[in-house]
């Protein structure tokens, strides 16, 4: 950024800055929510802010910047975007199913039971086991 690009057009730097700040801001918001929400199932929603348009914004900024500075279309960053979009739901779904399974086997009262299992309302054993 210092010596490789002596003259960068103003619109490029404005667009790159905009997408960078939007992406980083969304990611930070998602992580703050991840820290603040009270239950696991609410926390499941927070990181998707960072993986949807948080990643999208930063990938767009990187694509615009390298396309202008290298003077050829650079779009391999989109692979990171596609990869994150496809893989995050897999991780989150598996984690959600693991959490449901663990909560059900402990008889957690707030979790809807699977249809075959009859629920036994037991005491709240959330905080003890880690």
């Amino acid at each position: 950024m210092t010596d490789a690009t002596p003259d960068l057009p103003l619109w490029t730097s404005l667009m790159v800055s905009f997408f960078l700040l939007v992406g980083a801001g969304l990611t930070l918001t998602g992580s703050i929510g991840f820290l603040r929400f009270k239950t696991f199932y609410e926390r499941l929603h927070a990181p998707t802010l960072g993986t949807s348009w948080g990643t999208g914004g930063i990938v767009m900024a990187s694509m615009i910047y390298f396309t202008v500075t290298q003077q050829r279309p650079v779009f391999h960053e989109i692979l990171v975007g596609i990869f994150v979009t496809v893989t995050t739901p897999v991780t989150l779904m598996l984690l959600a199913r693991a959490a449901l399974h663990r909560d059900r086997s402990e008889g957690h009262p707030e979790v809807p039971g699977s249809s075959s299992l009859t629920e036994t309302p037991e005491t709240f054993i959330d905080q003890k086991k880690s």
Binding site: M1, T5, L8, P9, L10, T12, S13, L14, V16, S17, L20, L21, G23, A24, G25, T27, L28, G30, S31, I32, F34, L35, G50, I58
Partner: peptide, 22 residues
């Protein structure tokens, strides 16, 4: 334009570091 870009990159990096801390 380089000043704008370097400031926004710095701010974005600070935000992402805070997100990692969270």
């Amino acid at each position: 334009s380089l000043v704008i870009l370097s400031w926004s990159v710095t701010i974005a990096q600070i935000m992402l570091a805070l997100a990692m801390a969270c």
